[in-house]
Structures are given as C-alpha cells and as structure tokens.
Amino acid sequence: MTTSFLLIVQIILVVILVIAVLLQKSSSIGLGAYSGSNESVFGAKGPNSFLAKTTFLIGFLFVSNTIALGYLYSSTAQTSVVDNMVETTNVVAPVATTPVVAPAKDETPATK
C-alpha cells in the first residue's frame, strides 16, 4: 500500500519536474544559481529565480522519494533473482527411453 502511494507520487513528481525544467529560460546559469548567487525568490529577474528554486525543491523531493522507494522495495524482497536461478539450474537431463540398435556386422550397404 505504501509503495503504491509512493510510486504514484514519484510519477507525479517526474511530470512536475519535467514541466518546471522546460519552463525555465535556456540562457540561465542552471544549477550554478545555487552556489552563492544573490538571486532572491521574487528579485530583479522575476519568476526565473522562483522557477529555479522550485525545480531544486522538486528535485530534492524526487531524490528523497526514490531513496524511500528503494528502501521499501529492498526490505520487502526476501529472495533474489539469483537465488531463483540457482534453484532451477539443478534440472536432471531426460533419459532416452528408446534403445539404439546397431546394424549387424554381416550387413554391408549396397554401393553399386
């Protein structure tokens, strides 16, 4: 139940993140804005800074949700795919049921 809810939230976050990235100007400095820039939420550059901060927040939520999903899926899995492969490799080959009859020594094939 919890993993289903988090998976739906993950899909919604992906759609919102893609839209937020596509709405930004391509001439902005991108992620460099978070390394000491003096932009504010509604500063002189208008909504560009707001979109950049929103994108950062949605990206953080996306990564957090991904880690939570990974933890929940790994804790519910009791066996590995490799464990299932090892169990199925111990298959016995089938035994032939019809005997093979060798030709008699006195019979020679006609070559003429």
Rank of each mutant, 00 (worst) to 15 (best):
S27V: 02
S80E: 05
D106P: 02
G32K: 12
Q24L: 02
I8E: 11
G59I: 04
E87N: 00
F60W: 10
T54P: 02
T3S: 11
G32M: 05
N65P: 03
F50L: 15
A93K: 06
N48T: 09
V101W: 08
G43L: 10
T55Q: 03
N90I: 00
E87K: 01
F5I: 11
K45G: 06
I11M: 13
I67L: 15
A68F: 12
S35E: 10
E107H: 11
E87Y: 01
E39K: 12
S40G: 15
S74C: 12
P94A: 03
F5N: 11
A33Y: 10
E107C: 08
G46V: 08
F42T: 10
Y71M: 12
L6A: 03
P109L: 12
I58Q: 05
S26E: 13
P99H: 07
G43H: 10
T3L: 12
G36S: 06
P109G: 11
S75E: 09
A104G: 13
T3G: 07
T55A: 14
V100M: 04
L51S: 03
N48I: 08
F5Y: 08
Y73W: 13
I19A: 15
L22C: 14
N48D: 14
E87P: 00
V14K: 05
V92M: 01
F50T: 11
G43R: 06
V21H: 09
F62H: 09
S64Y: 04
S74N: 14
T79R: 07
N65Y: 02
L17F: 14
M1L: 11
Y34L: 08
T98A: 15
V95E: 10
E107T: 09
V92H: 03
Q24A: 03
T54G: 02
P99S: 10
I67R: 03
S74D: 09
N65D: 07
A44T: 11
P99I: 04
A96K: 14
F50G: 01
V81P: 00
T54A: 15
S35A: 09
A110Y: 11
K105E: 08
V41G: 01
L31D: 09
V81E: 01
S64L: 15
L61F: 14
A96W: 01
S27L: 03
S80P: 02
T98K: 15
N90R: 02
S74P: 02
V101N: 12
N65Q: 05
P109A: 08
Y73G: 04
S4C: 02
T108E: 14
Q24E: 08
P47A: 12
L7P: 00
L6V: 04
S37E: 05
L69Q: 07
T108S: 13
Q78K: 15
Q24W: 06
F60Y: 06
V82Y: 01
V9G: 00
L61A: 14
K45C: 02
K45L: 13
L22D: 03
T111W: 03
K112I: 07
T66R: 01
V21D: 04
N65K: 05
G43Y: 08
L69S: 03
S35T: 11
L57W: 04
V101P: 02
V21Q: 05
I29K: 12
A96R: 13
S49D: 14
V82E: 00
I67H: 08
L23M: 13
